[in-house]
Each structure stands twice: as C-alpha cells, then as structure tokens.
C-alpha cells in the first residue's frame, strides 16, 4: 500500500499539486486520471521520489519514504518497477541486456540464473526471439513490453506506469493494459497507472483518482465513474461526442 498525505508541489512558485491525499491499494490497479497538464506525471514522479515535494508525506507501507536519505531510499527503490511514457530503454543495450540490467546491478546471481530470469520475464510479456535486438529496432508496443519485463525482473512490490498506452494503437493499448492488470494480480503488486485514456479506465480501473488543476477532484472505481455527478469529472469522461450522446441522449 502507498499512502500520500497532504502533498504540495510547486515549480518556481507556481503551484502544480495542492493538498493531494490518497491511498493506493495493494493487489489493485490504481489509476491517476486527468487532462494533460493536470499534474498526473508530477504526482507520479513525486511519489517515486524523482521530484522533491514541498510538503506532505509519502508512505510506502509503514515507511515515510520522502524523509529517507538516498541510501535508505535505494532499499525501497529496489522494490519499485517503473514503466516510463517513452519506455526509457537504454539505447546502447540489447533487449536482453536491458532486462538483465537490474539483476546485474542488484543481485549476486550467476549469468545463467540471470539469463533464465530474463527469458522468463520476456516470455511473460510475449517477447520472443528479440533478445539480441536493440531498442531502436523495436516497435512502440514491443518497447513498452520490454520495459515492463525490465520493471518486473526484480519481482517488485510496486509498479508505476506513466501513460503506458501513449502512442499505441487501440488493440496494442488494450494488450498492454491487460498485461499490467495480470501482472498486478500475479505479483500482488501495488500498481499505479497514470493515464488519460478512458479505454484504460474502463479496462483496468479498480481504483481511480481524478486530478484536475493539481487538486484531487474525485475518487472511486470504474463502475462509479460513469454515474458520478461531479461536473469536472463528467466533462473529462464524456469528452468525446460518442460518449456524450450515450450520457446525454437528449442533448
């Protein structure tokens, strides 16, 4: 479980996040949704410690993460896997080396054991016969899947995904969503996904937090989101014309 309490974050005096308090539950796919520029990515990066927060508390289970020093943060970070918007695979390393990287850095396994783990992670995300390819030789969907394989290689307790569907076609996007959901259940992880894709919301949104203008506007699940009377949320959820017609048939 990850708990955020009264989080404030600003850049050069401009407030980006204001008084965010939310609990992300273990074994569930937790979604942070909102419009572009609403502060989703800042929130995600603040939780994992890539950005220093102005005030507030970030708890990983019973550990106050944001007050730890670099050395102690490393212990928690060894339990974190993260999927970045652009995949963030290391260009100079092959697929196999990318997935093996966390194992090389943080385990004392033999090369054979590490390669076994790499292959099982790649199999799990359906990447076949691509071990020796470089990231530049992969499609967008393959890059995301390799990045997921790298993220799970150390059996993380926490998985963070920043816009996992961006730049993907709808079918590949659904496959990535399903993969994230399956892995969350399989590894009993606390997964936090940042998205503005309503398909993802309806596919995997077990817990949803809606952010607007840096503030938490709404919290619920995928069933509740369709019947909410929160106007800001409805503007976002029913933004496209098809959804609008379904929601407001008389208009």
């Amino acid at each position: 479980m990850i708990r955020v309490e009264n989080l404030y974050k600003s850049f050069n005096g401009k407030s980006i996040l204001e008084d965010i308090s939310v609990t992300f539950e273990t074994g569930k796919t937790n979604l942070i949704i909102g419009r572009s520029g609403s502060g989703k990515t800042v929130l995600l990066k603040s939780i994992v410690g890539l950005l220093e927060i102005n005030s507030g508390e970030i708890w990983f289970e019973d550990v106050l993460f944001n007050k730890l020093d670099f050395k102690d943060k490393k212990v928690i970070r060894s339990e974190i896997g993260m999927l970045f918007q652009g995949s963030a695979l290391f260009d100079s390393l092959t697929v196999e080396q990318n997935v093996r990287f966390p194992l090389d850095m943080f385990t004392t396994k033999t090369l054979e054991e590490k390669n076994d783990r790499v292959n099982s992670c790649l199999d799990r995300v359906n990447i076949i016969n691509a071990n020796k390819l470089f990231p530049a030789e992969l499609s967008g969907g393959m890059k995301k899947r390799v990045a997921i394989a790298r993220a799970i290689s150390l059996n993380p307790k926490y998985l963070f995904c920043d816009e996992p569907n961006s730049g993907l076609d709808p079918i590949t996007a659904i496959l990535i969503d399903e993969l994230i959901k399956e892995l969350t259940e399989e590894y009993a992880m606390t997964t936090i996904v940042n998205t503005h894709d309503m398909n993802s919301v309806m596919e995997i949104g077990e817990k949803i937090v809606f952010i607007s203008d840096g503030k938490k506007c709404w919290e619920g699940n995928k069933n509740e989101i369709l019947i909410s009377d929160n106007e800001t949320l409805n503007d976002f959820v029913f933004a496209n014309s098809l959804a609008k017609k379904i929601r407001y048939p008389d208009k």
Binding site: L50, V75, R77, M82, F84, G86, A88, F90, M105
Partner: peptide
C-alpha cells in the same frame, strides 16, 4: 528520454 530517471528509480 527519461533513461536517467529510469536509473534513479532502480536505485542506481
């Protein structure tokens, strides 16, 4: 391309 962020997240 967030590769440095990826290293930091891993604790490197």
């Amino acid at each position: 391309s967030e590769q440095i962020d990826a290293l930091e997240i891993m604790g490197v």
